[in-house]
């Protein structure tokens, strides 16, 4: 089998279309209002209008012409079977002009099982709608400097995950996870500590009523975090414009970090304050 690779075929096709478009442009614009037919000329025109549309971000001119031609054909047919509801403005129907007096609408077609709808170049699809860029995805109109995800991003991700695995593997080979004596209800360790990320809360427990330290303050913390994007009305993301927000967040993080460090390393028996270099560390991961 001497198949030509798919990408070569595609490339050849594109080159052909480009050449045709050029020829059409040289021959001068085709007369306006010409019925949409499958002449090579129309194809070239379509290609040109696509290119133009791409540049301007508008609906290609030849599609607009096609849809109005279809509308006219439909109106001429005098309301064929199954009136279409006038749906959203962007809907364009592709109907072949001269496909018989009564161009069936899709609903009518389904009922009658009517004639096979095959378009000019043997196409069986129809254009239902044109979705303008920006209506689905948040697209910035300013051009942005971009690179291909493969290889630029994927290679980075791959290396990062390898390094992460390697680090964890080596660390786990040399440092054992703790496994203390089996749980025993009758022997309360002194001190008893929560996992490190909750030690800030346990630290608060020494200052406030348990409801305040264990429920109110952490609840407020999460609530404040959730509200952050809705309370910060400053649109800039430049550090120099956001000194207040950055300062506040740094204080917030430092507050917890300091509490966690104190709870982890500076609390000994009875959860009393100790200096780790005097009494040792009462902390397990």
């Amino acid at each position: 089998m001497a198949d030509i690779p798919e990408h070569l075929l595609k490339r050849a096709e594109e080159a052909k279309a480009k050449a045709a478009a050029k020829k059409a442009a040289a021959a001068g614009g085709a007369p306006v209002g010409e019925p949409v037919a499958a002449t090579p000329n129309a194809d070239a025109e379509a290609a040109a209008s696509f290119a133009e549309a791409e540049a301007s971000g508008k609906i290609p001119a030849h599609l607009l012409a096609r849809s109005s031609a279809a509308k006219a054909a439909k109106a001429g047919a005098g309301g064929g079977a199954g009136e279409e509801p006038a749906a959203g403005g962007g809907v364009a129907l592709l109907e072949r002009p001269g496909a018989g007096a009564a161009t069936p609408s899709p609903a009518g077609l389904a009922q009658t099982g009517g004639p096979a709808l095959v378009g000019p170049a043997g196409h069986t699809q129809r254009l239902l709608t044109v979705v303008k860029a920006g209506s689905i995805q948040d697209v910035k109109s300013t051009p942005i400097d971009k690179v291909s995800t493969w290889p630029h991003l994927l290679v980075g991700e791959f290396v990062a995950s390898l390094l992460c695995t390697a680090f964890l593997l080596v660390f786990s080979t040399f440092v054992r996870a703790p496994l203390l004596a089996q749980a025993n209800y009758n022997r309360t360790p002194n001190p008893s500590k929560a996992p490190w990320y909750f030690l800030g809360l346990q630290e608060l427990l020494t200052m406030f009523h348990p409801m305040v330290a264990g429920v109110t303050i952490p609840g407020m913390g999460i609530f404040i975090l959730i509200l952050a994007p809705y309370t910060d009305r400053n649109p800039s993301n430049k550090p120099e414009d956001r000194k207040f927000a950055i300062g506040l967040f740094t204080i917030f993080m430092m507050f917890w970090a300091v509490l966690v460090v104190i709870g982890s390393f500076f609390r000994g028996p009875g959860f009393n304050f100790v200096m780790p270099w005097n009494k040792g560390i009462f902390f397990d991961f």
Binding site: A183, T188, P195, F198, L201, P210, A213, V215, D284
Partner: peptide, 23 residues
């Protein structure tokens, strides 16, 4: 289910017990 596990979770869940109304 070692001493670390039991008592860390005891400390943590005791705090949950102070949730108002439904603690």
């Amino acid at each position: 289910w070692d001493q670390l596990a039991l008592w860390a979770v005891t400390v943590g869940t005791n705090m949950i017990g102070y949730t108002p109304v439904f603690g």
